[in-house]
Design a protein around this nucleic acid. Sequence first.
DNA 1: CGATCTTACGGGATTCGTAAACATA
DNA 2: TATGTTTACGAATCCCGTAAGATCG
Lengths: 301, 301
Amino acid sequence: MNFTLRELEAFLGVARLGNFTRAAKALNMSQPALTVRIRHLEEALGVRLLDRTTRSVALTQIGREFLPVVARVLGEIDAVAVNARDVAGRRRGVVTVAALPSAASTLLPAIIAAFKARHRGIVVRLRDGVAQRVTALVKSGEADFGIGSPTKRDPELRCSPLLSDPMSAVFPPGHPFEQRAAVRLEDLLTVPLILMDSEYSVRTLVDQAFESIGKGVAPAYEASYVSTALGLVKAGLGVAVLAYSAADEAATQAAALRARVIEHPMLVREISLIESTRRSLSPAAQQFLEAVRQGAPRRIA
Amino acid sequence: MNFTLRELEAFLGVARLGNFTRAAKALNMSQPALTVRIRHLEEALGVRLLDRTTRSVALTQIGREFLPVVARVLGEIDAVAVNARDVAGRRRGVVTVAALPSAASTLLPAIIAAFKARHRGIVVRLRDGVAQRVTALVKSGEADFGIGSPTKRDPELRCSPLLSDPMSAVFPPGHPFEQRAAVRLEDLLTVPLILMDSEYSVRTLVDQAFESIGKGVAPAYEASYVSTALGLVKAGLGVAVLAYSAADEAATQAAALRARVIEHPMLVREISLIESTRRSLSPAAQQFLEAVRQGAPRRIA
DNA sequence: CGATCTTACGGGATTCGTAAACATA
DNA sequence: TATGTTTACGAATCCCGTAAGATCG
């Protein structure tokens, strides 16, 4: 295959315009250069494609056979190129993002909605999972990037801080905590505690915080689902400690509950953007990642 | 579309072999040159197609989309090139030849049969017609070349002598002409003549020959079909003057008639190969034309 | 340290455009 | 003679291969 796409284009041009001179103009080149180009194609193929006379140019029998094939192939290649430009120009693409359930349910919906409105051709797919699953999805390539817990020194992953998600205390209306702007860790020792079970990474933060002040954790209840914890709070059985974004406004308001941030340096969940160091981001993914960076507040609540 | 087929091939090679070094070997080029080639393709498309690490090369999401398209397009182009080489190598093709009925019925069948045996991939199509129609078919391009009467100075046609087809006298067995090896023009004045009508170009030859010796033509019968003329001869109504190849052996033998060549310089029908000066011959047509040249005797009878 | 990709650079091939020659109606 | 193609040739560009550099496991 010793010929070029430009030569095929030249053949197509001459065949369609029926004339070297006009085709040369259409191809933005001099007419002698076009002659040479066509000749090279004919030599490469070993067949004469055009019959030249001074008055007109006609396709040979073989040229007639090739014309539709060449036209179709060039059309396909052009479609590929246009496609590529769309992808490069972020007019088209698919982005798959893996996110923690809290981010997936509270932070991302608004960002995705705004992004889709601005980028009609880009499809955003969302996969949620706990921290470990997020990193796995990014490493395997199933997700373009992730929103999860920063990992320490995995060479395959590059983490950058996205936001800080503080723990919050959730309680029913009329509870004494409602008078305060914020709750301190020590305050939690005075009330029955409703905590998530140890499957949740946030539970680890709570345990470690209590440990740092020399107190053991004695939850009145352990919940496996946020909705359960909120139900217990609503029944007046205690105060729940949840990531703020997990006990987001919608949930607390729907359950007619109140939430206050717990002010303690260890009771903050750091959430990171997680990218693969092995793969590069598609233009669409770059664009969406930037939208996430812009759309996420530094700190929730 | 500012990239080349070689670049697409390079992408395909790297994608399939998963490695620049191996792909470079497969493509018969140095590895740095391959790097540059791929980079140029990526820049032309505006998208990154491959993710390089020191240990391996992986397709990006876009690269995965493009791979099957590129593979298919290159396959089609390769098929085009192979096709062209087949045509150039005369392994495939279609030849259409226009011929006078006499040539079509006597000379060509054997030539075509031998040619098709040697060139299985080449299809020979035959169109017959009177001299004027043969030239028209060649001029219009419906036939690749023709076998007919030479035309004087039609700039669109180039004629080259193929064979000489003498006039012959056809008579029933036992006729006095049977004793002779040949018949002279003057002998024809002594018998009732059966001639073809003036639609036939051979009739012109007969008329002109008689005119040259100062005699008018007085046919006893005029026929519009050769079979009619032969029927008249068989009935003993006269001597027919026909082109030898028109009154070929098969016809005369089937009708149990005898034929003798008429020896006269004007009573020879020249049959030419007729090519267009406007179009070039396809390789298959060249091959078949050569077969006709080789297969035709200089002179019939 | 070894395998692999990228950058740098000089030399050679390709290809272009201008100008002139050639062909045909 | 007018229109259109081919040939000739100097110049610019492109592209390759070698050698050296950089990166990662």
